[in-house]
Write a protein that binds this DNA or RNA. Structure first.
Length: 594
RNA sequence: GGAGCCUUAGCUCAAUUGGUUAGAGCGCUGCCCUGUCACGGCAGAGGUUGCGGGUUCGAGCCCCGUAGGCUCCGCCA
């Protein structure tokens, strides 16, 4: 670094530097004008250093310093001095010393800012509009630094394991499955469009065909869907693919990567290997394929107990091929009417017809359903759910998947109400394995890929595929979950053209479409494609959890709002007519907005 | 596409049941202050209560609409 502007950064000087002539540059963080002597805290990326201007040394300079304001950018030349006895600041790494200024250069004045850099800003709208100021604030500045450490840890880790980073195109081709694509019109080919990649999925598989063997990339991906706290239209993936691998290889590779991330970014050792839970067990026990296991409240199956029940709602659900399940919200008999209404709304939102509950208050069970229950049924409930005084029991009676989902959602809601979710440093990593390969969509009346169409069916389930028992076919797919958040997912892929074509057919992609949309893939698979598989991670989500944040916007430099706008640059914005003409695009009248 | 919450000074918030001139802290401006570190003291400027309409003698507060932000559902292989 050239010493023209500075010789040290603002978190560098210590008592051992006393007597040195130094130059510092940065922002005026705090300004303390005592009438005579002037102190200011100079801030740069690394920290703070106190600078002193003493009128007895240089009255003119002190007068200049008196005129400085917050966030002015200055350069100071001076001598490092020990602070006078008893005046050290133990809260500052540089608190033993100060720089006695000999020279002051104002590099740039700052006008009054829309918010204080050191303050608390609640209005995210305002933060996003002035994102470059928001990023000066300690929290976001820290998040940027942590993100950099995570990215570096990832690159170091994969390089150390023989992976090479390969970039893939941003201008690529639209595919029928999955999210809505962002389209980019082609000028050279009027009427034709590129699509921005939802993931580098096809390219990375083609890199395996190319013999790259071990590929990774920190890749941008784009999905034109509605946003959430953990979803942005444009986001980053850690994309990984390797040849001649089995699921275990990818799982342990991932565990090593996450361990390296936590070690390098936080200095924390995480426990590996992670637990593995099948998709069935995860849903059956926690009502979710990304379970948060940091609190209990497991789903208990009561189907056996109610098969012959006098309570028609439960018996009827079972006779229709469903199940009866319940969770015990320990100590929540104190639930308020409002909370109970909230829980019932939640249950109905996810397809329950109603919400049966039991409040175990004193020796009494307060419930609308207990009068339908036999003594032995009550006893079974008591033992299986381990009901004690003060507990609240929530039931679901429905088809297995719906009952599980309803209770899974209730479980999360109750955990929130009871503050059961532990702090961020209690980490629960786990694998969810053996996902179903296919899922029937009644709305479209067709089978869809749960993961994506290149996912390999379990070898043991190939026969079920031929027997068209599609719902029972398991995939060689896996998700890694941390504290109820899906960090990433992947699979072993199909490398045989015949099997791939068969899967496409089941998904309703006819032969002509297969050739048009995936012809290059099928052809590539006929040229000596090695067995391969991989995984992709949501980098933003990983960084979010490492930083202890609850929104990925807090770990992205320039995120967009809920409605996909950049409030700083005001994108998206209208295109002028000339641009549109070049692209051969005419707007439909109703879409011509401001 | 749907549901909920929020919007008062530059920022963070307050304002009794609908009742006089909408307040405070920080920031900003001016003056004072020579060892502070969230420096201190005195004085001051700063408001179309997001916007539009309605009810009312009277609306920051009640009603309707609308804009924006956020959270969630749908959606996101």
């Amino acid at each position: 670094m050239s010493p023209v502007y500075r010789t040290h950064h603002c978190n560098e000087l210590r008592a051992s530097d006393v007597g040195r002539e130094v130059k510092l540059a940065g922002w005026v963080n705090m300004h303390r004008n005592l009438g005579g002597v002037v102190f200011l805290d100079l801030r740069d990326r690394e920290g703070l250093t106190q600078v002193v201007f003493r009128p007895e040394d240089n009255a003119e300079l002190a007068a200049e310093a008196r005129k400085l304001g917050h966030e002015d950018v200055i350069q100071v030349t001076g001598e490092v001095a020990a602070r006078i006895a008893g005046m050290a600041n133990p809260n500052l790494p540089t608190g033993e010393i100060e720089v006695i200024a000999h020279e002051l250069r104002v590099l740039n004045r700052a006008e009054d800012l829309p918010f204080e850099i050191g303050g608390d800003v609640k209005d995210e709208d305002l933060r996003l509009k002035y994102r470059y100021l928001d990023l000066r604030r300690p929290q976001l500045a820290r998040n940027l630094r942590i993100r950099d450490k995570v990215v570096k840890a990832v690159r170091d880790y994969f390089h150390a394991n023989g992976f090479i980073e390969v970039e893939t195109p941003i201008l690529s081709k639209s595919t029928p499955e999955g999210a809505r694509d962002f389209l980019v019109p082609s000028r050279i080919w009027p009427g034709k469009f590129y699509a921005l990649p939802q993931a580098p999925q096809q390219y990375k598989q083609l890199l395996m065909v190319a013999g790259v063997e071990k590929y990774f990339q920190i890749a941008k991906a784009f999905r034109d869907e509605d946003l959430r706290a953990d979803r942005q239209p444009e986001f980053s993936q850690i994309d990984v693919e390797a040849s001649f691998v089995r699921p275990d290889d990818i799982l342990s590779l991932t565990e090593g990567m996450l361990a390296a991330i936590y070690r390098d970014a936080l200095g924390v050792e995480i426990q590996t290997p992670f637990d593995r839970v099948t998709y069935y067990d995860a849903v059956n026990t926690y009502g979710s394929d990304k379970p948060d296991r940091r609190f209990g409240m497991k789903l208990v199956d009561l189907t056996g107990a109610f098969r012959q029940s006098g309570f028609k709602v439960f018996r009827g659900a079972i006779e229709n091929g469903g199940v009866v399940k319940a969770i015990n919200a320990k100590g929540f008999a104190s639930v308020t009417t409002g909370q109970l209404a909230d829980l019932e709304t939640t249950a109905k939102k996810f397809g329950a017809k109603g919400l049966a509950t039991i409040k175990a208050e004193g020796s009494e069970w307060k419930s609308a359903i207990t009068k339908f229950l036999s003594d032995s049924e009550r006893e079974t409930l008591r033992t299986q759910l381990e009901i004690e005084q003060g507990d609240l029991i929530l039931f679901a009676a429905d088809k297995w998947d719906r009952a599980c989902e309803v209770l899974g959602r209730l479980r999360l809601r109750v955990a929130e109400m009871l503050n059961l979710v532990p702090p961020n440093d209690v980490r629960d990593f786990l694998w969810v394995t053996d996902f179903p390969l296919l899922q029937f969509d009644p709305a479209e009346d067709k089978w869809n890929a749960v993961h994506h169409p290149f996912t390999r069916p379990h070898a043991a389930d190939m026969q079920l595929l031929d027997e068209k028992k599609y719902a029972a076919v398991r995939a060689e797919a896996y998700d890694v979950v941390l504290d109820g958040v899906e960090l990433g997912g992947g699979s072993i892929r199909i490398h045989e053209p015949e099997l791939q074509a068969k899967i496409f057919s089941i998904l309703g992609v006819n032969e002509q479409q297969q050739q048009e949309l995936f012809g290059h893939m099928l052809r590539a698979f006929r040229t000596g494609a090695p067995p391969h598989g991989g995984i992709a991670f949501g980098l933003d989500r990983i960084v979010m959890l490492v930083c202890g944040e609850t929104s990925i916007r807090e770990v992205m430099a320039f995120p967009k709002t809920n409605r996909a706008q950049d409030l700083m640059s005001q994108s998206p914005s209208p295109a002028d007519n000339r641009q549109l003409r070049d692209l051969g695009i005419k707007l439909a009248p109703e879409r011509e907005s401001s």
